[in-house]
Design a protein around this nucleic acid. Sequence first.
DNA 1: CGTCGAATTGATGTCATTCAACTACAGTGG
DNA 2: CCACTGTAGTTGAATGACATCAATTCGACG
Lengths: 192, 192
Amino acid sequence: MQGSGIHGDEFDRAAHLLRTAQFNKGDVLLETGSVCKDAFHVTKGLLRVATLDSDGNEHIVQFAPEGWFASDRGSMYFNEPSKLRIDAIEDSAVVLIGQDFFDALSSASEKFRSYNTTLLHNHIRHIQDRVALLLGARADERYQTFIRMYPDLLLRVPQKMIASYLGITPESLSRVRRELAERNFKGRAAKK
Amino acid sequence: MQGSGIHGDEFDRAAHLLRTAQFNKGDVLLETGSVCKDAFHVTKGLLRVATLDSDGNEHIVQFAPEGWFASDRGSMYFNEPSKLRIDAIEDSAVVLIGQDFFDALSSASEKFRSYNTTLLHNHIRHIQDRVALLLGARADERYQTFIRMYPDLLLRVPQKMIASYLGITPESLSRVRRELAERNFKGRAAKK
DNA sequence: CGTCGAATTGATGTCATTCAACTACAGTGG
DNA sequence: CCACTGTAGTTGAATGACATCAATTCGACG
């Protein structure tokens, strides 16, 4: 999820609980089946959050570019094995935020509590929209929604990953794109 | 979402902010486009949370039987119009919990804060699983997962609503059910 | 320049939808 | 009590959307 940033007195006092790390493209930050120990806040680069289904196919749940969080907060909070995998799509600089940090700052700072609560609500809203889209939209609509919401990612993320995020195959996405391009072309030509 | 219950001193002091209400089957508790003012905690009955897609089709996002919450926490928290609709599938007794209640108890009680945080994390985990299922599973797998997770609802909810929840048509669900029944029959016969 | 993965394209298959007909059943009013 | 009506569920046939498989092409990079 996206976060606007954390600052202030109490923050400084808990800052020693934060670590930063550098990851290379392809590095795995959270392996499926292990407990998620940290939330990853991306300062630079791009992370990917994914699940494996019963047939072994990978499905991308979320992208996390600069300023966003990647984590399995459920796994962190309940201390149970995660179904998700998090890895780096680009070389990335990341801030690691453990549950201890959340706990320390939560008990110390009202401001942080409300910040964190906002994060959680944002996250919920976000996934909720995703469910609605997956339930109600066909391939082309999903893609167009994606374009509107993450125009920047279009340029950075290989198409096959976008397809995975949308829940379709790379081939289908390719066809959807062609169709849209043709429609746009005809649309413009007609307007002339 | 499900909640185990709220009790204690601080709770009693904020209890006057709670209201209860009785709804009839078919009554609408939250209309699409309006801001969600209350979370609904079901003491008896069954609520439904749904979205409308661009073609006007309804998709059920969540069922809320006894002990569960139905609400759009995003809409409540950010005070923005909801994309969801909540109505009663059965005659229902409901506790209405406004944002003021959350705020009051949150500032008064550490216990409640953590309870609420747990609720939010539960909710996230829940929707996350739903996304994974919608991305990766076919109709029959979705249905079987539903059976495992909500065996009680199977008996109470009309099939067409289950279909809507699963993101398939009632006809498809009917066929899936027949297929499963046949498979089970053959399976048992073979074991004899 | 050669190699390897990404993307495109075509042919075909599968899963689920759509549309329509029909059955079963609950609720309503005569 | 029965006919009337509406809704849920089932079934069949045709269609549609997307997947799968296979063959190229494109493009980045060593």
